[in-house]
Simulated assay, not measured.
Amino acid sequence: MTLTGKQKRFLRARANRLRPVFQVGKNGLTATFIRQIDESLERNELIKINLLQNTTVSAKEVATDLTTALPKLVVAQIIGHVLVLYRPAEKEKYQRISAQVAAL
């Protein structure tokens, strides 16, 4: 899934008020961690992930691992140790942001 610049700007603006939901630590990405991110994206569509200082992986490595593990995932922004992730929800009752993104 590819987004236009206008859509990415909209997502970054919405994510500005969000706090990181998940933190990647020294264990890196595990299957359980990826499943939790998947479930959170289904309910929220837009989340932030923070990388702790003791992690051995970089933000770009986490982004590539997550995009390969989760279909339709888009990394809207990477700033330092913070990633903003977006994926449209499958269920209609959770599609709050994706309807606005599609309208842009």
Rank of each mutant, 00 (worst) to 15 (best):
F33M: 12
A102E: 14
A76I: 07
I97A: 04
I78M: 03
N27A: 09
V74K: 01
A89D: 11
Q36V: 07
S58E: 02
E39H: 13
A63L: 00
Q100H: 13
A76V: 01
R96V: 12
I34Q: 02
R9D: 09
L29H: 10
A13H: 02
Y86H: 07
K60D: 11
K26I: 05
F10E: 05
G28C: 08
R14M: 07
V82W: 01
S58D: 09
L83I: 11
I37E: 00
I34N: 03
K8Q: 07
F33A: 11
Q36P: 04
K60T: 09
L52V: 08
N44Q: 13
D38E: 15
K26V: 10
L52E: 13
G25F: 04
A63K: 05
E42F: 01
G28T: 10
L85C: 12
R14L: 09
I47T: 00
L3S: 08
I34P: 00
H81N: 14
K91R: 15
K8R: 06
A89I: 09
E92M: 07
L46P: 00
F33L: 13
L73Y: 11
A89P: 08
V57K: 12
E92G: 10
L18R: 06
A13W: 02
R12G: 01
E45V: 02
L46F: 10
Q77D: 13
F10G: 00
E90C: 06
Q7F: 09
L46M: 12
T2K: 11
Q23L: 07
I34R: 06
A89N: 08
T32M: 06
N16L: 10
Y86G: 03
Q100D: 15
L29A: 10
R19D: 07
